[in-house]
């Protein structure tokens, strides 16, 4: 039996019909066409599916859509400003070469954004600790950590 839920996704209210066992990741990807959040492991070990739920980084592959009825969801697609400008953290990822294959990038940027919202001047250690649940197989993390740190130093985020 499908049930109706309401999610505010990237600022837009969406009425959705979901099965009780339907994952938020699949609702975003299959019903809303927001494919920025990725399936990487399905069991919360890689962070590729990270989205923001009421501002908190959350693993969409472990979240039942029905359980977050009424929440605000931000995906990578909602991060740039309405005039099409990149979020400063996105800019910083480009400048630092922090994007290689790009598969971890949406989750990594969203996690980094929340860190900077909570702690605008994190140390390198704090950055490393905060993003440790987001795996990256390409970069060795260094350019990612620098991108987040640089965005904070410049006060861009």
């Amino acid at each position: 039996m499908k049930k109706q839920i309401t999610l505010t996704v990237n600022g837009v209210k969406r009425e959705l019909f979901v099965s009780p066992n339907e994952l938020l990741l699949n609702v975003l990807r299959d019903q809303l066409g927001l494919t920025g959040a990725k399936y990487g492991c399905g069991i919360g070990e890689c962070g590729s599916c990270t989205v923001l739920l009421d501002g908190e980084p959350s693993l969409a592959c472990l979240t039942l859509a029905i359980a977050v009825d009424g929440s605000e969801v931000t995906t990578i697609e909602g991060l740039q400003s309405r005039d099409g400008k990149l979020h400063p953290l996105q800019d910083s990822f480009l400048e630092h070469g922090a994007v290689q294959c790009g598969f971890c990038t949406p989750g990594m940027i969203l996690t980094g954004k929340v860190l900077l919202d909570e702690n605008p001047r994190p140390t390198e250690e704090e950055i490393r600790a905060y993003i440790r649940g987001n795996l990256c197989r390409c970069t060795g993390y260094t350019q990612i950590v620098q991108a987040i740190q640089d965005a904070s130093v410049k006060g861009k985020a």
Partner: peptide
């Protein structure tokens, strides 16, 4: 030069359509 790759913008925006992102 150390310049951003041409494919980095779409990737940072989450727009790149990887294999599973296509239906």
């Amino acid at each position: 030069k150390p310049i951003p790759r041409h494919d980095a913008w779409e990737k940072a925006l989450g727009l790149t359509a990887y294999a599973a992102d296509f239906s």
